[in-house]
Amino acid sequence: MNVSGLMPGILPRLPPGWKVSRRVVVERLYSLVVADGFERRGMRRLHVLYANSIRVARDTSLNMVLEALENDLQRYTATATSEMTFLHAGVVGWRGRAIMVPGCSLSGKTTLVREMLRLGATYYSDEFAVVDDSGLVHPFARPLGIREDFFPAQTNYTAENLGASTGVKPLPLGTAVLCSYEAGARWQPALLSQGQGALELLANSVAVRCQPHQTLRRLQKLVEHAVFVKGARGEAREAAASILNQSCAEEGWGAA
């Protein structure tokens, strides 16, 4: 950084669970060049962020550049970590098991996670399911990035802002919910086989191309006792209630 005093704004943007390292050699070095305060006619004041020697972001808004830092750090963590497998998915804890909502951006997974939190679930993540060698799902509890009415800009909320608590303990996967939003659709999901479900998770594995062995091994452990359901959902509130009810019902998803 070419100016001091920015760290308080950067620390909340570091990936959940970050720690200070004493290592002198780093794998990725970020450089933030903040534009000086002098206005010059016909010139835009641009703040620039580099990762190693590659420019990651350049914008007149420092906040946007810090947002790029946050996104890039999360993406890098998800790709470079070999001890864990990162799946692109929202996760909540419910009755001792994880409910996972895999999906790409704008698929509505954060909305569904938010509704499940309102109904009493515990927050684990709205972005990544982090899976260890035993197939347990760890929290990656960054603030929920909520897009209001599909406006591209996000507003961040902590789980506590939404009246929910954040999970700490790793959980086995109970249910994986594969859904897409369809206006007016009634949530009537179909059950998927374990293999089909694992394939869907593979499609949301961040680092499968560079870590295929670990990814497949951890997926096999992850899905051992999991149920997979797939379907179109209408309003998130209705689907969330149904998912939580059926995830803990004795007859489970057999009646779905």
Partner: peptide, 20 residues
Amino acid sequence: APTPAQAASCLHNLQACTSN
């Protein structure tokens, strides 16, 4: 299999955005 960028919550080409 997705590339890391495809499996992350950034916006892809032709999606609406407000900043880089």
